[in-house]
Nucleic acid binder design. Structure first.
Lengths: 209, 209
DNA sequence: TATCTTCTGTGATTCATTTCACAGTGAGAT
DNA sequence: ATCTCACTGTGAAATGAATCACAGAAGATA
């Protein structure tokens, strides 16, 4: 299994969520077009994605849901589990904690940080919060490779640099700021200002044919 | 100006933010490679994007920052302003309010909604909150075309349908749920669970050459 | 004025991603 | 036992997006 693209990974994550729902409804098998309709993509796309991760369906019964979830997990998840840090305990950061505290099989927020001492030293949603000065030590000792960044834009670049220096290799960036980091660090921007600009603009000019 | 892609719109939004910062530092002109470095893209990409919205730079001085901001605004913004609704006043929704209350020239959250009466009837961050039952009336009377959806996943599809029926044409969806809507509605997903899956997976396999 | 340099604007190309379309397959019907 | 139908797996084609690379422009320099 060579280089699987980010796009494909996103779709696999969508499929997994939908498959979990189907399994919960007692379904055991699913056709490519069934998954496709639920995920809002084409059936050919689903088949190609599944092919890419090396999993096969039965010609007449479709794909086995449980098996599929297993295959997707093999691709997406770190089998040892993936500890995640949350940096920035403002309104947004605190709002995200319970969001992620939800039942993901492997990802877990194990530490959070803030520069404001009033917000640290406690346990919020089962996750211990540390002062910013402890960042490097905790990240290193817990071997954290993935972080969520919810600090103010003005601090984002500096904090991101510290994270990278401490060993973090993937950052989910909520700050409205373009991060400049060494190329071994993967950054995914969740920039709401840009997203709103985009949908406002597209919605205005979008006219279905 | 024909069909400008979503990708390009996102970059234009990034450019605008950076240009604002440059203007604040007293810069009046910028080269394509200057903007490119700040935005993390190539100079050719910047030139092509700017070409696409019909704006020209001077061969030897580069682009005029103020003019550029104007051109980008002409493409991205609704000149009449764009009222936005926020639906769902849970932790996440409340955390987003101040985020967007920030100084966008045209976008403004003018109304928010929640099904819990305890959360409505007030004014939060300068934005009046209404009970869910008022949704259609307010959206129609305020002519709101863009909405941010921060309700629980289980309610997302239903609420999105109501929004579309009330006239909303663009939805920024924070719920971990694939929305099925008529094609005249533009949906942009801000799905944190998927994004985390993605960076965790990419960070693990990513090895710069 | 002539030359040099460094920029922009853009056709052509490359690269990435999605869709098409069909051969192959197997369960169920007859 | 064979036929039929609806599915999968996948090469090939189409589409979409980013990059290359260079002609042309204009300030700087002498």
């Amino acid at each position: 299994m060579k280089n699987i693209t980010g796009r494909t990974i996103e779709r696999l994550s969508v499929y997994r969520r939908l498959l979990g729902k189907l399994a919960g409804e007692g379904r055991g098998k699913v056709y490519s077009h069934g998954l496709a309709a639920a995920a809002g993509v084409t059936a050919a796309q689903v088949r190609r994605d599944l092919m890419e991760i090396g999993c096969s369906g039965n010609t007449k019964r479709g794909y086995d849901i449980e098996e599929l979830v297993g295959f997707i997990g093999d691709v997406l998840d770190n089998p040892a589990g993936e500890p995640v840090a949350l940096v920035g305990l403002g309104n947004l950061g605190r709002a995200l904690l319970p969001f992620f505290a939800s039942h993901h099989p492997k990802l877990k927020i194990v530490a959070s940080f803030d520069s404001d001492p009033a917000k640290t030293g406690r346990v919020i949603h089962g996750c211990r919060s540390y002062p910013a000065g402890e960042l490097r030590r905790v990240i290193e000792s817990e071997r954290i490779r993935v972080a969520i960044l919810t600090v103010p834009a003005a601090a984002a670049q500096e904090v991101a640099g510290e994270l990278a220096a401490a060993g973090v290799r993937g950052i989910l960036n909520f700050a409205p700021e373009t991060l400049r980091l060494p190329e071994e660090v993967v950054v995914e921007n969740m920039d709401m200002a840009i997203a709103l600009d985009k949908i406002a603009c597209l919605a205005r000019r979008h006219r279905p044919e």
